[in-house]
């Protein structure tokens, strides 16, 4: 197990990539880790490419730079594959997770020959089956935790339940759907062969 895991999120403004990064830091903290979760800020607007980062470690995190050699990359919107170099610096022994409805043969040529593991998740399908609305960050969060193994899945699900109970204290009907989305994403995420 790495003493430091670095994760980079690519998304579009409004999709919740920043929220996912901060949620991951939050839940990793609950699991006893040292964490750093932060977005890269600029002139934000809906739909523009955004980047967010997580550092999760067993030791104190002092560095304050962006992440250039991530262990894992999560791409919340597959249209970014055409415009953003999502595998830049990605470690070969790491992995990339992409939210897409497209088959692997369409996605793989867009990854510039990245030799590491590639995972796909249809977050829309997961969301529609569980939430009835498209919030891709919830399933993506579950999938990246599974792939990166930054924490035990049972601990993750338990801490997420606590966190969501708090977050949706006034909307308990949403809690169940979110938990289902997390569990379904864990089943649905698949590695490209």
């Amino acid at each position: 197990m790495r003493h430091l895991t670095e994760i980079r999120w690519h998304g579009r403004g409004g999709q919740g990539a920043k929220t996912a990064a901060l949620l991951l830091a939050d839940v990793a903290f609950q699991a006893g880790k040292q964490v750093q979760g932060f977005p890269e800020y600029g002139p934000e607007r809906m739909g523009a490419p955004i980047t967010a980062y997580d550092r999760i470690s067993d030791r104190e995190i002092r560095v304050h730079s962006n992440i250039y050699k991530p262990d894992f990359v999560a791409v919340v919107d597959d249209t970014l594959l055409h415009t953003v170099d999502v595998t830049a610096g990605l470690k070969e022994d790491g992995a990339i997770l992409i939210n897409t409805v497209r088959p692997a043969e369409e996605i793989m040529p867009l990854l510039k020959g990245y030799p590491g593991r590639v995972y796909l998740l249809d977050a829309r399908k997961v969301c529609m089956a569980t939430l009835g609305k498209y919030f891709p960050n919830t399933p993506m969060l579950a999938a990246i935790v599974k792939i990166s193994e930054v924490m035990d899945i049972d601990v993750f699900l338990r801490e997420m339940e606590t966190s969501l109970q708090h977050k949706f204290a006034r909307k308990p009907e949403v809690l169940d759907g979110n938990l289902k989305a997390l569990r379904l994403a864990l089943e649905e995420v698949t590695e490209c062969q």
Binding site: Q34, F38, H64
Partner: peptide, 12 residues
């Protein structure tokens, strides 16, 4: 404190 770098980064 440094804008965004520490103001918006969640840490322990």
């Amino acid at each position: 404190q440094d804008g965004f770098i520490t103001s918006h980064a969640v840490q322990n």
